[in-house]
C-alpha cells in the first residue's frame, strides 16, 4: 500500500497551479485535502504521474455571504461546520456534514475536492444539487460557470476539463418559509450512504408548496435529482398523502445499483422511507 512514484509540484499561486495543470493535463491531479485521492494512490488504483499541491492557495479557502454564499474550493469541511452563517442560512449543509466520515477527515477534506472527486455516495454533491449551486471552473486560458445539475457526469466523473480546476462554489439562499432536511442511512456513522436524501420545500402564503427539491446520494451513478417526485408536491399542502405519493414517485424513478451492504431493492426501500421522513421534517420546518 505504497503509492507508485510520482512527481510532486507545489503551487504557490492559482496561476502556477493552472499553468502546471495546463502542462501536465490528464497526467496530473490536484492535491487538495487528499482524503480520497491518497488512499486510492496507496491502493495503486490511481497512479497520477504528477501531484500538484494546491494547499498553499489560501485565496481558494473561505466563506463569504452577500445575497448568495460563496465558498472557496479549498474550504475544509471543518470550516463549514464551524461557520455560524452557514448554520443560519444553509442549515442543511450543517445537517449533512456529520455524516461525512469522521472529524479527523473533515479537518483535511475540502468541499471542492469532494465535488471534483464526484463519488455518487458522497453527501455534498447531492446537497449542492438540492441547493441549486453554481460551480466556478478556471483554466490558464479561461473561466466558466456551470450549474451543479450539469456538473456530474458519472461515478467519479465530472465536466472538469484536463486543464481546469474547480475554484468556487456559489450557493443561492433559500426563499422565505423554506424548510430543508438531510437524512442518511449508512452501516456505521461516517460510512458511505446506503441512501441519503436532501429535501427542500417552500410554503407559499396560501399554505401550499410553491417549490420543492429532492436529491439523493448513494443510489445512482451521480447524485440523483427526483424531478417528478418534487414537482408532484407543488400546488398543494404537503400532507401525509402527498408525501406518500412523492415517495412512491421517487422510488419508481430510482434504479439503484446496489452495493455490498444493500441490494438494489433494499436501497430503493431505504430511499423511500427516508423520502417520507425527510419531507415531513422539511415541511414542518417551513
Amino acid at each position: 500500500m505504497k503509492p507508485a512514484p510520482f512527481k510532486y509540484v507545489i503551487a504557490r499561486t492559482l496561476d502556477e497551479a493552472l499553468a502546471a495543470k495546463a502542462e501536465y493535463g490528464d497526467e496530473a491531479r490536484f492535491l487538495a485535502g487528499g482524503q480520497s485521492l491518497v488512499p486510492t494512490m496507496n491502493f495503486r488504483m490511481a497512479m497520477p504521474a504528477v501531484l500538484i499541491d494546491i494547499n498553499p492557495l489560501t485565496e481558494l479557502s473561505g466563506i463569504k455571504a452577500n445575497g448568495v454564499t460563496r465558498i472557496g474550493a479549498m474550504t475544509r469541511y471543518r470550516m463549514l461546520e464551524a461557520d455560524a452563517g452557514i448554520g443560519e442560512r444553509l442549515r442543511i449543509i450543517h445537517e449533512a456534514l456529520p455524516h461525512i466520515a469522521h472529524p479527523q477527515i473533515r479537518n483535511r477534506g475540502t468541499l471542492g475536492g469532494n465535488l471534483s472527486h464526484a463519488d455518487p455516495a458522497s453527501e455534498m454533491p447531492a446537497i449542492m444539487l438540492a441547493l441549486n449551486a453554481t460551480l466556478y471552473l478556471r483554466s490558464a486560458k479561461a473561466a466558466r460557470q456551470i450549474a451543479a445539475r450539469d456538473f456530474f457526469v458519472g461515478a467519479l466523473e465530472t465536466v472538469i476539463a484536463p486543464d481546469e480546476m474547480l475554484t468556487e462554489i456559489v450557493v443561492p439562499h433559500l426563499p422565505a418559509n423554506s424548510g430543508a432536511c438531510f437524512m442518511e442511512v449508512a452501516r456505521r456513522q461516517g460510512d458511505f450512504a446506503i441512501a441519503g436524501i436532501a429535501a427542500i420545500v417552500t410554503r407559499g402564503a396560501d399554505g401550499t408548496c410553491t417549490r420543492a427539491r429532492l436529491t439523493y446520494c448513494g443510489v445512482a451513478q451521480t447524485p440523483f435529482y427526483a424531478d417528478d417526485a418534487a414537482q408532484s408536491l407543488i400546488g398543494g399542502p404537503v400532507t401525509p398523502a402527498a408525501i406518500k405519493q412523492a415517495a412512491a414517485l421517487a422510488m419508481e424513478a430510482l434504479d439503484p445499483p446496489g452495493n455490498s451492504h444493500a441490494d438494489p431493492s433494499y436501497q430503493r426501500h431505504v430511499a423511500g422511507v427516508l423520502t417520507r421522513r425527510a419531507l415531513a421534517t422539511a415541511w414542518a420546518r417551513t
Binding site: V185, R187, I194, H261, A262, D263, S265, Y266, H269
Partner: peptide, 11 residues
C-alpha cells in the same frame, strides 16, 4: 446479519 440481509429475509 445486517439491515440489508434482514430486508431480504423478511421480503
Amino acid at each position: 446479519l445486517s439491515p440489508g440481509r434482514l430486508w431480504q429475509l423478511i421480503t
